[in-house]
């Protein structure tokens, strides 16, 4: 069926073709969102897990000598990598830097109302409760915070995103496959006479099947590219807003080859290209699968 090119075949049934491409676009748009969310939450989780830290905030009565003694005592346990004392003045400087774009938040805030603190890096997350206990037992310690709760909360979010993602993507893949099979099946029925004639003039089974399989692949590819463009636009729009929310989170990478890295935060063009490639392969596979099922079901040569 070479005389009628693939584009001509698609154009001659525009509504069916648009339905097939749109369902693929919807599937891969949602898939793209879940892939980004799952990778991003995993990376954030890994980041917090790799930086086991406890922070103790002191009352104004705590003197510098007792803090130095505390640092020495912590280091003597062998469970601490490093400690960092942040004075009231340094806390104010950090606060000012974080809120430099919001003058309202800077008003009325002085070094006096901010507490001095000690940041303690553990050698392993499992030592965090021990360090927490030492700090809480220290006099003039107002509050101790550490990342256990944050990590647990992130872990729960990541697991939920993965579970919901698998179910939603699974349902959408199934629906796409079903719609694609139906559309290709309708096209086979419409071309029954043509297929019969081609068989009579010596066309092989693969010659007759090839254009239908190619059509399925094209629907997959078009749908994916369309959804990817929208997703990339959304990513570019939302990144600056997320940037304010995730202040202090460094660049996060999902893969690295020597000096070449693929960043999930901020989402890099190389990540988006990788996503496109993975989605196109998946979409083409669905296209081939849908066409093959339709050919098996509806084509009798």
């Amino acid at each position: 069926m070479k005389t009628l090119g693939i584009w001509q075949r698609i154009r001659r049934n525009p509504y069916q073709s648009a339905s097939a491409a749109l369902i693929m676009a919807l599937t891969f748009f949602v898939t793209g969102i879940f892939i980004i969310l799952a990778l991003f939450s995993s990376s954030i989780l890994s980041y917090f897990e790799s930086k086991p830290q406890v922070t103790a905030f002191f009352t104004d009565k705590k003197d510098i000598n007792s803090i130095k003694n505390l640092e020495a005592a912590l280091k003597a346990t062998g469970k601490v990598t490093s400690t960092k004392f942040i004075s009231k003045e340094e806390a104010l400087a950090i606060y000012k830097e974080q809120n430099k774009n919001d003058p309202l938040l800077l008003e009325m805030v002085t070094a006096e109302i901010l507490p001095a603190s000690l940041e303690v890096q553990a050698t392993d997350p499992k030592f965090l409760p021990d360090i927490n206990a030492i700090l809480k037992g220290e006099p003039e310690v107002e509050e101790v915070i550490y990342q256990k709760e944050l990590v647990e909360s992130l872990l729960s979010w990541t697991n939920n995103i993965r579970k919901i993602g698998i179910v939603v993507i699974g349902v959408l893949f199934f629906v796409s496959l079903l719609i694609l099979t139906t559309i290709i099946g309708m096209k086979i029925a419409l071309k029954k006479e043509e297929i019969d004639i081609l068989t009579l003039v010596g066309a092989t089974e693969s010659y007759i099947k090839r254009p239908f399989i190619l059509e399925g692949m094209v629907y997959g590819a078009i749908g994916t590219i369309f959804s990817w463009i929208i997703l990339y636009g959304l990513v570019l729009y939302i990144t600056p807003h997320l940037g304010n929310f995730l202040l202090g989170i460094p660049d996060l990478y999902i893969a690295a080859w020597g000096s070449y890295r693929i960043a999930i935060w901020p989402i890099s063009p190389s990540f988006m290209v990788l996503l496109l490639l993975v989605e196109i392969i998946a979409a083409i596979t669905i296209g081939i699968l849908g066409s093959t099922i339709a050919l098996k079901r509806y084509l009798k040569i």
Binding site: K2, T3, L4, E194, L198, V201, G202, T204
Partner: peptide, 20 residues
């Protein structure tokens, strides 16, 4: 006849060669 009605005279004849 068993002619392909969606194709022109030339395209109908060409089908045999395309299959080959």
């Amino acid at each position: 006849f068993k002619i392909l009605h969606s194709r022109t005279v030339a395209e109908n004849i060409a089908v045999t060669l395309e299959i080959l």
